[in-house]
Design a protein around this nucleic acid. Structure first.
Lengths: 218, 218
DNA sequence: GCTAGCATAATTGTATACAATATACAATTA
DNA sequence: TAATTGTATATTGTATACAATTATGCTAGC
C-alpha cells in the first residue's frame, strides 16, 4: 500500500494564496478588482509580507496582473482568451494522454477511479462546489500521471485554474444529462482498454463540450 | 510606426530576479545550489524582502524549487527533462506558427528581421553571449506575435528560459556551419512566402537540432 | 466652468527586527 | 561504540516601521 505523503508545511503565504485563488476562480472577485494589500492582510489576519507573496503566486498562475507601485488586479475574462486556454488544454492534454495510456498500470486505473468517485460526490452534495476545480483536476491528472511529464503537468495545472474561471460548475454537477460524468467514465474506459485514439477523441470532445458550456461573463 | 512600449518601473525584486535568472541559465549556479537569502541579499545590496520575491518568481519560472523553511535550490537538469521541454516547445511553437503565418503583415516581417539582425550581432561579438537567451527569444516571439495568443506566449517564454539552461550557446553563435542562423533565415523566408507547412517543418527541425546539440550536464 | 499645479492622503516597495523552524553538533545513555 | 536526546547555530517566515510612488482633491488662475 502507498505510504502517506510527507507532511506539508503550510506557510501563511500559501494559505493566503489558496484562499485568494479560490475567490478568484469562484468569481467572488470580479475582473479588474483591485487587491489592496493592507486591506486583505487585515482581513486574513496576516501581515503584508506573506500576503504580497501570495499575490506573486497568483500572478505566476495567471490569475492577476501586478504592476509595480500600483498593485494587483484580477485579470480580465474574454471569449477569445477562453478559447485560447481551452485550445491549449486540448493541445497539451491530448499529447499527454497519448504518452500516458501505453504506460498506465492497474494502480493508475485504480487511482483514477478513486479520483472519479471523489469528483462525483460533489454532484450529490452541491454545497461543496468549491472543491470542483481540485477534484476535476485530480481526475484528469491521474490519467496523465503515467506519462511522467512533470513540467507539462505543472503548466497544465495552472491552465486548469484559468479555464475554471469560465466554467459554470452548477451545469456540470447537476444537469440532467450530466455529460461531464459520462465523458469521464468513457474516457477512463478507453484508457483501460488501451485504445489511445478513442481516448484522444473522447478527451477532445469532452474539453470542447465544457468550453461550449461556458456562460456569460464581463 | 509602432509606439514605444510603456515605461517599465523597475523594482529591486525585478532586478534581483533578472540577475539571478541570468546566473542560473548561464550555469553560474549549478543544479542543487542553495540560494541563501541573507547571503544573496547582502551581495546584491538589498534586503531579504525583495530578494525573497525574486526567488518566488524564479520558482514560478521553473528555475528553482522552494521548500518551506528550507529555502530555494537550483532545479536539477536531466536528459529526460530536456527532452520533455524541447518536445513541449515543438508542440506549442508549431501550433503557434500555424496560427501566426496567415496573419503576419509586413510590419511583423520587418520586426522579425530586426530581431534576427540583433541576434546575429552576438555571433560577431561573442562576449555578449549572456544576451543569447533574450535575443533568440525575441526572434521566435516576433514570428508568433501575429497569432495574438498572449497566454500561450507567456508559457512559451518561460519554456525558453528552461530550455536555454541546456544549450551550449558557443556552438550556435560561432560554429563554422552556424546552422541556427541558416535555419532562422529559412524560417523567416517560409513565413514571408506564406508557406505554413514548410515553416512548421523548418521550425520542428530547428528545435530538434538545437536539442541534439545539448551538451553534458550534471 | 475648466484646467494646471500643488498639497495631502492612500498605497505599494523596502529595511529592520523578531519568531519559528531546520541543521549541526555535543552530551547522554544503552 | 551506536543510537538518541538535548542544545546551539543558521536559516527561513513574519511583523512592524519607514520610504517611495501614486492617487485624490483642492485652490488658483484663466
Amino acid at each position: 500500500m502507498a505510504i502517506a505523503k510527507t507532511i506539508k508545511r503550510r506557510t501563511l503565504a500559501d494559505e493566503s494564496f489558496n484562499l485568494l485563488k479560490q475567490r478568484i476562480i469562484s468569481g467572488f472577485y470580479k475582473p479588474d478588482h483591485a487587491l489592496r494589500q493592507d486591506e486583505l492582510a487585515k482581513e486574513l489576519g496576516v501581515s503584508r509580507i506573506p500576503l504580497r507573496e501570495a499575490l506573486l503566486k497568483l500572478e505566476a498562475d495567471g490569475l492577476i496582473d501586478i504592476l509595480a507601485h500600483k498593485g494587483g488586479i484580477v485579470r480580465a475574462l474574454s471569449f477569445d482568451k477562453a478559447q485560447e486556454l481551452f485550445d491549449l488544454r486540448i493541445l497539451i492534454e491530448c499529447d499527454l494522454i497519448v504518452k500516458s495510456v501505453p504506460k498506465m498500470t492497474s494502480e493508475n486505473f485504480a487511482n483514477a477511479e478513486i479520483a472519479l468517485k471523489e469528483f462525483d460526490k460533489i454532484a450529490l452534495n452541491e454545497e461543496n462546489i468549491e472543491d470542483w476545480t481540485e477534484l476535476n483536476w485530480q481526475f484528469h491528472y491521474k490519467l496523465y500521471e503515467a506519462a511522467e511529464k512533470e513540467e507539462t503537468i505543472k503548466i497544465l495545472k495552472s491552465l486548469h485554474s484559468n479555464c475554471d474561471r469560465y466554467i459554470r460548475k452548477q451545469l456540470l454537477v447537476a444537469g440532467a444529462g450530466n455529460q461531464a460524468h459520462k465523458q469521464h467514465m468513457k474516457l477512463l474506459e478507453y484508457c483501460k482498454s488501451g485504445d489511445v485514439s478513442a481516448a484522444v477523441g473522447e478527451l477532445k470532445s469532452h474539453i470542447t463540450e465544457v468550453f461550449n458550456g461556458i456562460g456569460e461573463f464581463v
